[in-house]
């Protein structure tokens, strides 16, 4: 399983090339405003962009955009909610998988009946991670996944990310925390001046 990106261009970013393999945990760092989120959005095809992207050799343009995004899933830093309660946001996922995922994030299954307006920042962050990961994407792109979490919950999230990677999911995560990049990442790439540089493996 491999995500291959060739000549990706989006506004000030690129052209750039990189790959994400199954089990990779890629830490993506770079100064604020350099376009880390734009890069992930472009990979998910949420903005107009150019480039040859393939997943296991299958071209992005050969499949409908929703099918691509179900496999190459992007979780933004600020989560959006389209229903009043939490549960409808998990539509289409197996209930046992949802409940299990919530438990591993330190949430009870009663969280499904909570009202979105009452969620704390940390709850939103964990629930938006959960509602993506329950669909078992091949590549999961996380934009600052632990920025709103207390140390205990951030630790739980990191452990969970490692477990999913061990299960074969390729992970890309944006972080501003060098220690987290070193601790969690199996690879480290840096975006600066529209170009990517990969730090050599430690």
């Amino acid at each position: 399983m491999i995500l291959s990106i060739r000549h990706l261009k989006r506004l000030t970013i690129g052209p750039l090339d990189f790959e994400v393999a199954a089990g990779d945990i890629v830490a993506l760092t770079g100064p604020s405003g350099v376009g880390k989120s734009l890069l992930l959005r472009a990979i998910a095809d949420l903005d107009v962009n150019e480039g040859q992207l393939t997943l296991n050799g299958e071209a992005r343009e050969s499949m409908a955009a929703p099918d691509w995004r179900k496999q190459v899933m992007y979780v933004p830093a600020y989560s959006g909610w389209w229903a009043d309660l939490v549960e409808p946001h998990f539509e289409g996922a197996e209930r046992s998988v949802v409940v299990d995922t919530l438990h591993r994030l330190g949430l009870e299954s009663t969280a499904l009946s909570w009202e979105v307006t009452n969620l704390s920042t940390g709850e939103r962050q964990r629930l938006s991670f959960a509602r993506a990961v329950v669909h078992n994407p091949k590549i999961l792109m996380l934009d600052e996944p632990t920025s709103g979490l207390d140390p205990d919950n951030a630790h739980k999230m990191e452990k969970l990310i490692e477990q999913y990677a061990q299960g074969g999911m390729g992970i890309v995560f944006v972080t501003h925390d060098a220690a987290q990049a070193a601790r969690l990442g199996t690879r480290h790439i840096r975006l600066e001046g529209g170009q990517l540089t990969e730090a050599s493996a430690p």
Binding site: A44, L46, A65, P66, S79, G80, A132
Partner: peptide, 21 residues
């Protein structure tokens, strides 16, 4: 509702479903 709509799109919902409401 841009953020909510794009959250659905990112999860693989079709645009028709995402804008229907």
């Amino acid at each position: 509702e841009k953020i909510a709509i794009e959250a659905r799109l990112a999860l693989g919902h079709a645009r028709r479903d995402a804008v229907r409401p």
